[in-house]
Design a protein around this nucleic acid. Structure first.
Length: 436
RNA sequence: GCGGGCGUCGCCAAGUGGUUAAGGCAGCGGCUUGUGGCGCCGCUAUUCGGGGGUUCGAAUCCCCUCGCUCGCCCCA
């Protein structure tokens, strides 16, 4: 160690918290992504792609300096122009920034979704990586509580459609900034009288972020909090009614939920609805999807005051819940070949068959035919195309069914039997055989 | 940043102080100099994450270090 280059003996590997996704797994990801696209498309949500790298100031202002995410978890560095840059730790700030920058907010309501990697410098654990992926939705420019429920329903339905079981929707309201200022005063007053009973973490938050104390994991603190004044109790009439309507709409949609008064967001631009979708099968990181309303964010980033509602899902956590391995589809055709001339013919033919839209694997081993057949069988492929030197010289190939399943009835080619076919007719013959 | 667990071949894994470090899968070669799912034979870790120490002797004990993993904090 010591040198930035490291020593020659050091084993090169991915950085801590940066995971490689390998082939069987990536299929599950593709399924998740495809399903998400489908859900967004049918809901009239357009995809937005923003840079992974942003000015540090965006997150400092958009997420808040007081948060852990900004305070100690960002991947920040200076670029060659001495600008402070940050790998995005979340998506919302970038989306709102882009919407402001391109004048989208003066063009009526925007329905946007995104998908991609986010970066937070944390100790990795189950369901948590330093580079992780989110699928997110942002609805901008609609303040109506129906948009809250529209957004939540999209998350709920996507998860259900993916086959995730054991989900719980937890919901709370933060009211308006005025509601919260008022509550905050009340809360701090109540807690200060009991400061000596608080755990050290919570006592610290009393000045930095008192609302978060409600979410403390300390048993003693939770015990103490049993009698704490509730935000719901201090909400103004408008906020109260708004929240009631959100709940009514959820009931109308048959989406079950539980009120979670401890679910809080500490920053001023968060308003009204906050929610999380959790799953008991995830270990310590139970939240698959989290989101809420952020009517104050656009203005905070220098744009026109604009209502906002959104959520993000953790794709790693989602895939964890799906628990599938992904089954690669077997090839339709495997091309076995041996000998100099045959190898050339085989690669030419393979390309032709692929251009005819067939799934074709070419054996590149040069091994004995016996071994090539064994390997071909193991791929689960259906039809073998065999080219040896004799066939290559004669301008033909041989066709033979692989493995036992006799779907070849009526094809005129029985199991174990070989057909000799001129090279020029292979594509047509193979197509006919495979389609019955 | 702080705690717990773990680290033997590409993967799974036996071995817990004593001559050459089991086995399985995968890979490669052969039985079959051009025809299959099975079988059989052979090959594939001078070395147990790395470094130091104890000992006549260490993968096995001790220390340090790196990495993985789970949890705290926080979040998706």
């Amino acid at each position: 160690m010591g040198s930035v280059l490291g020593t020659a003996l050091e084993r090169l590997q991915a950085l801590r918290g940066m995971a490689d996704l390998l082939p069987p797994q990536t299929m599950v990801w593709q399924q998740v992504e495809a399903r998400a696209r489908q859900h967004f498309q049918r809901a009239g949500v357009g995809e937005i792609r923003t840079p992974l790298l942003e000015a540090t100031a965006l997150f400092a202002r958009g997420i808040g300096e007081a948060t852990d995410v900004v305070g100690k978890e960002m991947y920040s560095f200076q670029d060659r122009g001495l600008r402070s840059c940050t790998m995005r730790p979340e998506g919302t700030a970038s989306v709102v920034r882009a919407a402001i920058q391109h004048g989208l907010l003066s063009q009526g309501p925007q329905r946007l979704w995104y998908m991609g990697p986010m970066f937070r410098y944390e100790r990795p654990q189950a369901g948590r990586q330093r580079q992780f992926h989110q699928i997110g939705l942002e609805l901008l420019g609609v303040a109506d509580e129906r948009s809250d429920v529209d957004a939540i329903a999209m998350a709920w339905d996507l998860l259900a459609d993916l086959g995730v079981r054991g989900l719980q929707l937890q919901i709370n309201t933060l009211g308006t900034p005025e509601d919260r200022r008022c509550y905050r005063e009340q809360l701090v007053g109540w807690l200060e009288q009991r400061a000596h009973e608080l755990d050290p973490d919570s006592r610290h938050r009393l000045t930095t972020n008192p609302l978060r104390i409600l979410d403390s994991k300390s048993k003693a603190t939770q015990q103490l909090l049993l009698g704490v004044p509730q935000l719901l109790g201090t909400l103004g009439k408008g906020s109260r009614e708004r929240f009631d309507r959100v709940c009514q709409l959820l009931r109308a949609l048959d989406i079950p939920f539980v009120l979670q008064p401890r679910l809080v967001r500490g920053l001023d631009y968060y308003t009204h609805t906050a929610f999380e979708i959790t799953c008991d099968q995830l270990g310590a990181q139970a939240t698959v999807c989290g989101g809420g309303r952020y009517d104050g964010l656009a203005a905070m980033l220098g744009g026109p005051p604009t209502a906002g509602m959104g959520w993000a899902m953790g794709v790693e956590r989602l895939v964890l819940l799906l628990g599938q391995q992904g089954n690669p589809s077997p090839p339709q055709v495997v091309v076995l070949n041996r000998g100099d001339t045959a190898q050339v013919g085989a690669i030419v033919l393979t390309r032709q068959l692929r251009q005819a839209n067939l799934h074709v694997e070419l054996d590149l081993s040069g091994a004995a035919f016996a071994r090539q057949f064994k390997r071909a069988d193991r791929t689960g492929g259906r039809l073998a195309v065999i080219i040896g030197e004799q066939e290559a010289q004669a301008g033909v190939v041989k066709l033979k069914w692989l493995h036992q399943t006799p779907q070849q009835q009526g094809s005129g080619l029985a199991m174990g039997e070989e057909w000799t076919v001129p090279v020029t007719e292979v594509a047509g013959t193979v197509g006919r055989l495979l389609n019955g």
